[in-house]
Design a protein around this nucleic acid. Structure first.
Lengths: 117, 117
DNA sequence: CATACAAATAACTGTTTGGTTCTGTAACTG
DNA sequence: CAGTTACAGAACCAAACAGTTATTTGTATG
């Protein structure tokens, strides 16, 4: 997937609260089956399967196999790429966002100090 | 706007390459009029206006007034919020993303050392 | 082998998106 | 004040989205 299309898919996947909640649960609880994922949502199982397909096509999750179950696994690489895109704008948050800005300003200095580009 | 809806709007706005390109130009060149923004894109002026409306509703740009012109101004706050959401997942990128991971690992240590929550 | 379970697929529906062209409007300009 | 510039809005369209229910597939298990 070319870079732009990958970012398209990643940001689109993140634009839905159900999908963000799925990622949050995977981060907190590790691999989860579809039924277990669907349980807290007021939504049918096929709806969850569709959301998982969106996440999978964006590379944000992968699927395993455990008998009838297809445990869902978080794949965070696209999140790193999306973060990388956003980090480019850190200088524009200036001032208004004290803590995050402080920390990312520090990050920027470290980046310079490390001599890497 | 409640937090989730705001993230929805921000990530959705970022999921289109034309809109990301608009933000990139605003970051690089400062405020730009609609005509100037539209020029490099193979797209009609109303199409650009629609994209700007999406960006504006997400709080990513604001509009000024200069005679007939409505210069577009980057508002980076939602980008900071989106970055804040993504940063929560930094630990899951581990290892695979040397540089960004190193830097954000450093960030994490600084955060701990600073005693802020 | 019949049944139950987990998940995917199909078919359908209403809404949103991303583009178009045409028209309207506010503000400058000769 | 007639014309032009810069933009927004309306109306339209095809494709994509997000959900539904009903059905199918694959894998145990009694």
């Amino acid at each position: 997937m070319i870079d732009a299309a990958r970012l398209d898919a990643t940001f689109h996947a993140l634009s839905d609260p159900t999908r963000r909640a799925i990622l949050a649960r995977l981060a907190a609880e590790g691999d989860i089956t579809v039924m277990d994922l669907a349980e807290p949502f007021e939504m049918s199982q096929p709806a969850i399967s569709k959301h998982l397909k969106v996440l999978e096509e964006a590379g944000l999750v992968s699927r395993g196999r455990d008998a009838q179950r297809r445990p869902v696994h978080l794949e965070a690489q696209p999140l790193a790429e999306a973060t990388g895109w956003l980090i480019e704008y850190r200088q524009y948050w200036a001032a208004q966002f004290g803590r995050l800005d402080d920390l990312l300003g520090e990050l920027q200095r470290l980046e310079a100090a490390s001599g890497k580009t």
